[in-house]
Amino acid sequence: MIHVIAGLTTPFRYQFFNNGIIVATIAGALCGLLGVFVVLRGMSYIGHGLSHAVFGGAAASAVMNVNYFVGAGVWGIASGVIIGRIARRRLIGADAAIGVVTTASFALGLALLNRYGQAKKSIEAVLFGSVLGVKTIDIVAVSAVAILSVVIIVALYRAFLFATFDPEVAQVSGVRVAWIEALLMGLLSLTILVTMRVIGTLLISALLVIPASIARMLTNSFARMLWISPIIGGVSAFVGMYLSYFLDTSASATIILTGTLMFIVVYAVTGIRGRTRISGLHHI
């Protein structure tokens, strides 16, 4: 029995694992929180594109020897605001515009790393995430963004709700919708920035979409979604990270697969009611 318990607690003996699981759990909860807006606003493609855009910034900052958080942060927030504006103003087909902007940024990042970086290792770490590289600064960064997101969303709860549900009437009623949208895109960019090193560019959009979709199947209340989704995100990240140690699989892939399993279970258990609720979500 003692051996079993000792075996189960083995991963926690390693500092890198403890750092990784802390960042992953907070990242899961944070993505779950912002994922509510991503899912309800039909922005999952934007989340996917944004993570690719941030990759360009990460590569550029590595090549130019600029701090990752500064370089990728500025790049990511700028991309987020541009994407938000394109999507809102419908200047050209939003999907096409986002595809061009973000994949161009992604391609630029790849080219820069090929030409000047320690290409293979850096690219794999950014694309698929890595728990080995997680440092204390990552824990501080993801915690700071999580606290900032919670404070902003709670403090401006109704403006966020109104601007998400009915942006036109919200604007008329005095809500600064463009400002709220820019704020949301900024938070989303920051979230991707601080979680990308663990989850990776390619899988982060799944962490934005899966917990919120599960929460939507479980409740008809926006307020409840805002706490159910982060719990699901945090739990799936914790469990996925923990299992990845024993299964010897990629942490980010195991986290997403854990979330997917939860999705399938909830989808089956909630039946028609759950399916009806998520059938109205856009771009899932």
Partner: peptide, 11 residues
């Protein structure tokens, strides 16, 4: 109640 976004901000 969502129209009172500028007055009652909290959930």
């Amino acid at each position: 109640v969502m129209t009172r976004s500028s007055v009652g901000r909290l959930p």
